[in-house]
Nucleic acid binder design. Structure first.
Lengths: 113, 113
DNA sequence: TCTATATATTCGAAGATTCGAATATTGTCA
DNA sequence: TGACAATATTCGAATCTTCGAATATATAGA
């Protein structure tokens, strides 16, 4: 059971573990309710790609989509997820220097790969 | 820059996205400071595997290890990470029913795979 | 120094994730 | 009904993650 809870949490984190999905969540947090077209236009992503990311978020029930006529409007299912992101922003600011170094590392790793 | 922050957050979530790593973090949160041997004994994991997970957590600076003689004692670098896990426990409780269904899905997916 | 203990790293196979391209589905309006 | 618009799904290649096995490194004590 302890392990079940660990799996549950890990599953949520996994769903959050992609920059585009974070961007989607923050957009929904800020705007409340956005159609898919609004998401991919605002974020400059491919339609299919956004649909795939939304499928991941839906599968973990982080996000819900409601049909309205022709479109599907997405929103966060629970404000707590927004709070988690806020905590991480705090964390980022508290360790700004090291966080920036970390980002730099990620980039150079990418460019060397 | 917005995108950098998204990458940073995604990187942290990725580091948290594994049941064993969650277990390690919760152990450190509860006990404060634990040697590697204490971690793998308490969690029933392989030594090498725990070292690998610790390497992931170290690379994102979620955890720090300090040598004391023969051993390395690990602890959380910042209480905020513990708070993130607490929020998720709240989240789990708030959506207990669906969360349990989700867990069931994960299991059946596993067993069918 | 030799040996034992504690931890970390490297390797390779199995599995998971990601993306764009192509295609399917659903709803609207003529 | 047919044509279009919005969204979702499937496929396959590239990339990343995970694990145990084997090996490396570091410290302590005889």
């Amino acid at each position: 059971m302890q392990d079940d809870l660990h799996r549950f949490k890990a599953g949520i984190f996994q769903a959050l573990a992609h920059p585009s999905r974070i961007a989607i969540i923050e957009l929904l947090r800020d705007e409340g309710k956005v159609p898919v077209s609004g998401i991919f236009e605002r974020l400059g992503l491919e339609q299919a790609n956004v649909s795939q990311h939304l499928a991941v978020l839906r599968s973990k029930q982080i996000v819900i989509g409601r049909k309205e006529g022709n479109q599907v409007f997405y929103s966060l299912r629970d404000r707590i997820i927004g709070k988690v992101l806020d905590l991480l922003r705090q964390y980022f600011e508290a360790h700004l220097k090291e966080a920036l170094d970390l980002l730099k590392d990620m980039k150079t790793d990418d460019s060397l790969a």
